[in-house]
């Protein structure tokens, strides 16, 4: 199993190649969308690179729970409900949702994921 450092190194390589950012921009706290400028199509690129780098398969719904965010049961007036938050936490145990929870606007969800979240996700996948 790769160490935390090895995971960060490979995730950094994938992000540098996929997003054309400098290596020193890829800090653990950097958000994928806001800080690194990832657009929706880039996530497909990132997923391809991570699958190859780690020899794993990444089901899209694990990283991008769009089905929850478009489900009327979990979203009311543009905000994720408590039930929705619980569902997101269950689906994305690797993501730090504490900041999002304070004002859970669906439109802000895309900017939630950080480099660190991505590393934690990969760690759970390679440990399987």
């Amino acid at each position: 199993m790769p160490s935390k450092e090895e995971v960060l190194e490979k995730v950094t390589d994938a992000l540098v190649d996929a997003l054309g950012v400098d290596e020193d921009e890829v800090t653990p706290e950097a958000t994928m969308v806001g800080d690194l400028g990832a657009e929706s199509i880039d996530f497909l690129d990132i997923v391809f690179r991570l699958e190859k780098a780690f020899g794993i398969e990444i089901p899209r719904s694990e990283l991008f729970p769009e089905d929850i965010l478009t489900n009327a049961e979990y979203v009311k007036e543009g905000k994720v409900t408590d039930a929705g938050i619980a569902e997101l936490k269950k689906r994305m145990p690797f993501a730090d949702l504490s900041k999002f929870e304070t004002n859970p606007q669906v439109q802000d969800f895309g900017n939630l994921l950080t480099v660190n979240d991505l590393c934690r996700y990969i760690e759970t996948k390679v440990a399987d």
Binding site: L44, D45, F48, E51, K52, R60
Partner: peptide, 10 residues
């Protein structure tokens, strides 16, 4: 074709 998935290919 390096990789192909239901939503895309590389």
């Amino acid at each position: 074709l390096e990789d192909i998935q239901p939503d895309g290919a590389f």
